[in-house]
Nucleic acid binder design. Structure first.
Lengths: 348, 348
DNA sequence: TTGAAAGCGGTACCAC
DNA sequence: GTGGTACCGCTTTCAA
């Protein structure tokens, strides 16, 4: 009613404007502040377009009423939902959780949130999950891995939103990519062990697609150097210590003691180490062990384990930056190789 | 145009109905199927109300067009968003991630998804996070811990949605609760160690509110039995192995060797064990170690470590069930004590 | 069993 | 700087 008076002229009765739902809407705030809805919207989203006095008035009413904006309505109207969906195989896998944490933190700084979906390791529900997630209209997508069903691929393309695939490298991502070459990992670990003078090799690995990429490269590199026989134990994902122990046992049954074992995860490597210790083998004296992932227990706990280090937070951070760039209409680098590092510990 | 012909009579031109956005809407599907929008909606949400022939017709069009429902619009119209927000201190903390996984899985079965928010351990952004989350209008909330700022408490109550707080016990939850008594944990661990005949005690603990509850109970129980002096080392959360090692070192400096040490997490316990081994102490011969949380490395790896076991998946599962019950208008039990179990390993 | 009309709570677009 | 109007895409209510 009044126009430029200070905020005290608001009739108490106006409080009752709240609908039956009992929840204050933007329109309620507008009425109480004596401005139009769009002005309240601007105070919230683009305050630089509003006069300071108006801002103060509106902010006061917002404060007083405890108004909480409805992002469903906002998203529907603007087709920008300010959230990114992330799909990982399992939330409890520390390898992914650190990337997700970094992604979440970075996006949070820019006013975005992360909806996390777990596709599941054994029985993949990726297709249904993707459909469910896309129906919430995320502004962007963070996907673990580069292999998707045809169905999913189609949906992803149809969604027409920025997408970052991570943890692998391909020249043909759906949209953008942050990863590293598992092939190179396999090669470098092999070369590293050869350089150290090891002559016999083993592989303890989960039945995981990315692990298999590393294994193939590992084997073919060794093969090229004339080491054809690789004692191999394949265990079922997800890995745990027990499987690592079993892995080594099975390898030892396969023939004479290998001197260097490459494991598909630090968890398995840890198990292998336990089994080695239980058998009285010295590590890395009798047996060199190389893990993958560099979870902290490897770094802090077992100075005798070697591992492959990946900057996991960087993966999340870079993915976030790429998505944010696209949200602002920029064209970031499409493919980023974050690389890795073989961390050697212990001596021959 | 046609009414009951089979789906082939749809004019190709009708495909062009799609708006400039290029995204198929429910209205488009309706037109193509020759029915009203509401009928399409029913096919999706309440097919039991629609004639089989109509369902088939509509489903076909949905399939052909690749229609993806817009849950923003649906949520706005129905004020049911079909998602639950969960707030945890940190996603990488395995203690929480298993509960979240169970929560996610259970809710998924009922068509709900989980939006995960991390409040952060050192600098808590819980208030801002909560505001951001509530603006997305979740149907329910899963909160770690029972202590919230006044601001948050007010918001939570104003939101008027089902809320489950977890990991602690209080007679006055905001709404519902799934937890266990940290006080009882401290008492039982103390009694257990006393019963085993230990005479000297130590505490290696992170500066965490829930840990402190356990510690107070631990100390006072020992005190009641005449063991007043408890060598204590407090380290800063989040815990890691290194801090565990340091913890034991500091305790050993405080006086003669304690025989039994209670740690605020298995991670710390693991570190304590390492330090003990490095010093040539036998465990549990010279030193009994009790952890907390029963992460698998404790279970599989260190038969000499004792720990406190909590059914973490059950926490998520029960929380999900309670929320789902409320969504259906039922009144589930408000407070559930999931209990815990002191797992003793090794011998004196 | 199906449909028409009226919102849900915001924002875009374009005047003023 | 500020406001009017239309509309985002779906569901609710009630009627047929």
């Amino acid at each position: 009613m009044e126009s430029s008076k200070s905020g005290s002229a608001i009739p108490a009765e106006a409080e009752a404007i709240r609908k039956s739902t009992g929840i204050v809407t933007l329109a309620d705030v507008a009425k109480l502040a004596g401005v139009s809805p769009i002005t309240v919207s601007r105070v919230l989203n683009r305050p630089e377009l509003v006069a300071p006095a108006t801002i103060a008035k509106v902010r006061q009413v917002i404060e007083r009423t405890g108004y909480v904006p409805n992002l469903l309505a906002g998203g529907l109207a603007s087709s920008r939902t300010r959230f990114v969906a992330a799909i990982v195989p399992a939330i409890s896998n520390q390898v992914f959780s650190e990337s997700i944490q970094a992604l979440t933190d970075r996006l949070w700084e820019s006013g975005y949130q992360v909806l996390l979906g777990t596709s599941g390791y054994p029985t993949s529900r990726e297709d249904a999950l993707l459909a469910a997630i896309l129906s919430r209209r995320p502004d962007g997508l963070f996907l673990t891995g580069i292999s998707h069903s045809d169905e999913s691929r189609r949906r992803l393309i149809a969604a027409r939103i920025p997408i970052v695939e991570v943890w692998d490298l391909t020249p043909t991502p759906i949209d953008m990519l942050v990863g590293f070459s598992h092939v190179k990992v396999g090669e470098e670990v092999a070369e590293c062990l050869i350089a150290k003078g090891y002559k016999r090799f083993g592989l303890v690995t989960a039945d995981d697609a990315r692990a298999e990429e590393r294994n193939v490269a590992f084997r073919s590199t060794l093969d090229r150097h004339g080491f054809a026989e690789i004692a191999t134990a394949v265990v079922q994902a997800p890995s745990n210590f027990r499987l690592g122990r079993e892995g080594l046992s099975r390898i030892l049954e396969l023939g004479p003691l290998p001197r260097a074992v490459f494991c598909s995860s630090d968890t398995l490597a840890h198990g292998v180490l336990m089994e080695a210790q239980a058998r009285g083998l010295s590590v890395p004296g009798d047996l060199a062990i190389v893990g993958f992932g560099d979870l902290n227990f490897a770094a802090y706990t077992f100075p005798s384990l070697s591992t492959v280090w990946i900057d996991r937070p960087a993966v999340g951070r870079m993915a976030a930056d790429m998505l944010l760039a696209r949200f602002e209409g920029k064209e970031p680098e499409k493919i980023v190789d974050v690389g890795f590092q073989v961390v050697e510990r212990g001596t021959t």
